[in-house]
Amino acid sequence: MDAVLETVDTADFSLWPVAGLPPHRLLALSPHMTPLEVGTALATLADYNSRTPDDHRPVTDAHERIRRLLETDKVIAPGGLRIHHTDIDVTVSPGCCCGLEDWREWLDITNGDTPWLGHDPSPRVEHADPVVRLWPHGGDAADAPSERPIEIPVGDLPGILRTVRDGLHGFLSLSPDSGLPATFRLSPWT
């Protein structure tokens, strides 16, 4: 399981160096990212969070883009959590309109809750004590999809999510400025 960010189109982006990744690609955030991947992730975050309700002026330099990102009350981060089960070769990716900023909601699965995983492809979650089943799509269907789901023991989720948190910490350690807003900072588990 890893935290992923859906990239924006950076073909015309020139405020800082970025990787030549296509838009709408899921980029895993981790301590193993290249500097250009970190630049792309920050460009995506800055793009999604650069429009403030009271300031419609265009952003013309890197300092202003980062300043607006750091002053954001709640950072919006397109993406979410991606799970891949290597033994059965199934991947569940976040759907459209899912946000990485809500990644902690996955911990609520241990209480029987179902987090929003987006739509199109509409990932599906099913509680089947002592496991949770995840399908890449079929969230809106009345019946379970015919393909094999990923099954995760509910008791393993907190540990798995700690590895996600560690990967996000690693990404932030690569960022030129880790002073992101409090809503995006990664607090310890309580």
Rank of each mutant, 00 (worst) to 15 (best):
Y48M: 09
P181Q: 10
G112Q: 01
H169K: 08
P31W: 11
W189L: 03
R162D: 05
A19L: 12
A142I: 00
L172V: 07
S122D: 15
T110F: 12
S30C: 06
V132C: 05
K74T: 02
P78Y: 03
D87A: 10
M33Q: 06
C98W: 02
T52I: 00
I83W: 06
E37Y: 05
G20P: 13
G155R: 04
V18Q: 11
P153Q: 06
D2M: 03
L36H: 07
L29C: 11
D54E: 08
D108W: 14
G139Y: 08
H56I: 00
N111H: 09
L21Q: 12
W189S: 01
A144M: 08
G80N: 03
D120N: 13
H63Q: 13
L15V: 02
R25G: 04
I88D: 12
N111E: 07
T40C: 05
L134Y: 06
A77L: 02
L134N: 02
S175W: 14
A41K: 10
P22Q: 15
C97H: 11
A141S: 08
T163E: 03
D143I: 03
P136L: 13
G39P: 05
P130T: 04
P153K: 09
A43P: 10
L186P: 02
G39H: 05
D102A: 13
G80Y: 01
L186E: 02
R185Y: 04
G20D: 15
R165Q: 04
S30W: 06
R162L: 09
R68W: 07
T163M: 04
D12H: 15
L168H: 08
T44Y: 06
P181L: 10
F184W: 15
V164G: 03
I76L: 13
M1C: 04
R165V: 00
V90I: 14
F13Y: 15
T10K: 14
T163I: 00
T40E: 06
P23K: 13
R104G: 06
D2N: 11
D9A: 10
A28M: 08
K74Y: 06
G20L: 15
G155K: 02
V8P: 14
A46G: 02
T52A: 05
L15T: 04
A3M: 05
S14D: 15
A3P: 07
T114Q: 11
G39Q: 05
P149S: 02
L180F: 15
R124F: 09
E37M: 01
G95F: 12
L134G: 01
M33D: 03
P23W: 14
T72G: 02
L161H: 01
A43S: 06
I88Q: 12
D89Y: 02
E64P: 00
T10R: 15
R51Y: 11
E151G: 01
R185K: 10
A46I: 03
L27N: 09
K74R: 10
L15M: 15
I83A: 01
D55S: 00
